[in-house]
Design a protein around this nucleic acid. Structure first.
Lengths: 178, 178
DNA sequence: TAGTTTCCTCTACATCTGTAGAGGAGGAAC
DNA sequence: GTTCCTCCTCTACAGATGTAGAGGAAACTA
């Protein structure tokens, strides 16, 4: 479908060149579409941005359900897969930053597994599951950010390798401890 | 000094409108300078970006030296102060994302208190201080990101309040535990 | 078959952006 | 006072960008 091709291309563009690289014509060229196509599907730039953010959210709805026998391991694997899907994750960060000044985007992005984290914290026997869940989420998001764009991006193990998963698992285990 | 006025204005602009809002003329207008001023000081856009990132790094060199008697508390206060200085921190995130596709920026941004974190982890009796330091950094960066642009930005306590510092302290304590 | 609708391509245009350079105001050097 | 230099303002211009609409091909309906 044309529309999806456009939003997917937009995601790539944003990941590789930042929000500044996202223009109607750039998408056309990148996707090999005739000039004007993107502009026809998304008349304004705002629409284009919302389109790509929605696409991003859709693709992520295939949620994370941790295996109860290996919670840390399954979370680690999920995180690692997000590191491997570098572009999608980078685009998501760009979108989150953008949502800072365009609150409409927030409602699209929420995906936040808040209850999931709280439930997990309860299961693990934390005293204040609400807060522990928030801290857990913060830690996981932070781990991802650190490894992808922060200090860890230059030093850490290569995403997709067993070593990377193990390093993540080690960190996640620490975070899960009540 | 003109130059600093320009870079400071650039930081504000980036925080409030994203990298896309950073143009020579926008800075001129925002700073109340005659049109062409920014372009005279920073001939190319690349120079302008590097200029504002350098300014950002300079301002942050006033580093964090945690009080040994209250490590968690002093870290929490520092984090909270970064939440309060919302614009500077947002601009830093924008710069980090930008550094993803403009590696020159990375060398300016490094600020990474890597050895500091490792030293701290050693002091606290972690087995593998190198790794523990990295995880600690990840967690702190994550906490900040989560509270500023992530899920916690809509739910968490208001930055600058005692409640906010306490919440952060609670989280930091958990992270410091060997 | 003819009519209608949908989807797409092309073209247009006002505005913004990056970048460059001409030239003036004012102080410093002589 | 004249010359020189630095700092700044103004203007110019090619190219990019956001947005709109005209019109055609293809698909569907009757």
């Amino acid at each position: 479908m044309r529309r999806d091709l456009i939003t997917d291309t937009a995601i790539q563009l944003v990941a590789e060149e930042g929000m500044r690289g996202l223009t109607h014509r750039a998408v056309d060229r990148r996707a090999g579409l005739p000039e004007g196509s993107t502009s026809a599907y998304f008349r304004t730039r705002k629409a284009l941005v919302e389109g790509f953010v929605e696409r991003l959210a859709d693709q992520e709805r295939l949620d994370v359900v941790p295996d109860p026998d290996d919670v840390a391991g399954s979370i680690a694997r999920t995180l690692d897969s997000w590191l491997v899907e570098r572009n999608r994750t980078l685009a998501r960060y760009a979108a989150m930053l953008e949502a800072t000044h365009h609150p409409e985007l927030k409602s699209i992005l929420v995906h936040s597994p808040r209850e999931q984290a709280t439930a997990l914290a309860t299961m693990l026997g934390h005293e204040d599951p609400e807060r522990a869940g928030a801290h857990l989420t913060a830690f996981l998001e932070g781990l991802l950010f650190y490894r992808l764009v922060g200090g860890g991006s230059t030093v850490g193990p290569t995403p997709g390798t067993e070593e990377s998963v193990l390093d993540l698992k080690n960190a996640v285990e620490k975070a899960l401890r009540p």
